[in-house]
């Protein structure tokens, strides 16, 4: 069968490329779009290293035939940090020593992003369940679970601060946003 044109919105940019039928989304991201953060650990949905967000939901991109998601929105690890600022999950992984070899990290972070987007205050058990499809061979998982819980706490705190500022801004027509760079911005971005 002939290749066909596929359109995706990837990390908030429209991308158009050719793909042969059955090409995994993972291969399109890596080979056609040069987005290398998602990794190929097994190519059969058993390791989670290729996890990306498809219309906000975490999927193993090695299992998704790209032509079946034409028009969808995709978010990869490359689209998480903005303007060089790490987001809360990235910061928590970095500062929490939740990475060793780094090969599972992209999938872990994207799984965590999806969890925190739908559940800002997860229990430890909910974090454990969320990452149950992601294999890590180095860390023993503990630091990863801790980092995701830490990220959730950071994000809640940041969102609360942003809401406070928006509240002030709405009431007084101004707020000293410069004092806490990026915070209101980040919260607004996620809600959009």
């Amino acid at each position: 069968m002939a290749s066909q044109v596929v359109n995706l919105r990837v990390n908030e940019r429209s991308r158009e490329f050719l793909a042969a039928p059955g090409t995994p989304l993972l291969s399109s991201l890596r080979d056609a779009l040069g987005l290398m953060a998602a990794k190929r650990g097994c190519a059969q949905g058993s390791c989670g290293t290729c996890t990306v967000l498809l219309d906000g939901r975490p999927v193993m991109s090695c299992l998704v035939a790209v032509e079946t998601v034409d028009g969808a929105s995709v978010r990869t690890l490359e689209g998480v940090a903005r303007g060089g600022d790490l987001d809360e999950v990235q910061s928590a992984f970095l500062e929490g020593f939740a990475t060793q070899c780094g090969f599972c990290t992209a999938g872990m972070i994207m799984t965590a992003e999806a969890l925190l987007d739908r559940n800002p205050d997860p229990t430890r058990a909910e974090v454990v369940e969320a990452i149950s499809g992601n294999v890590c061979r180095c860390t023993g998982y503990g630091p990863i679970v801790d980092a995701i819980l830490d990220a959730a706490a950071r994000r809640r705190k940041e969102d609360a601060a942003a809401r406070r500022k928006e509240d002030i801004a709405a009431r007084w027509g101004t707020a000293d946003i410069a004092a806490t760079p990026g915070t209101a911005d980040a919260a607004a971005r996620r809600r959009s």
């Binding site: 890596r30 080979d31 040069g34 290398m36 953060a37 998602a38 990794k39 190929r40 990869t76 690890l77 490359e78 998480v80 940090a81 790490l86 990235q90 910061s91 992984f93 970095l94 020593f97 990475t99 780094g102 090969f103 990290t105 992209a106 972070i109």
Partner: peptide, 19 residues
Amino acid sequence: RSDALGHVTGRSSFFEDLS
């Protein structure tokens, strides 16, 4: 860790990231 920033941003380059 000097490699952690690359890992959390997806910029660490593994051999298969070369095409």
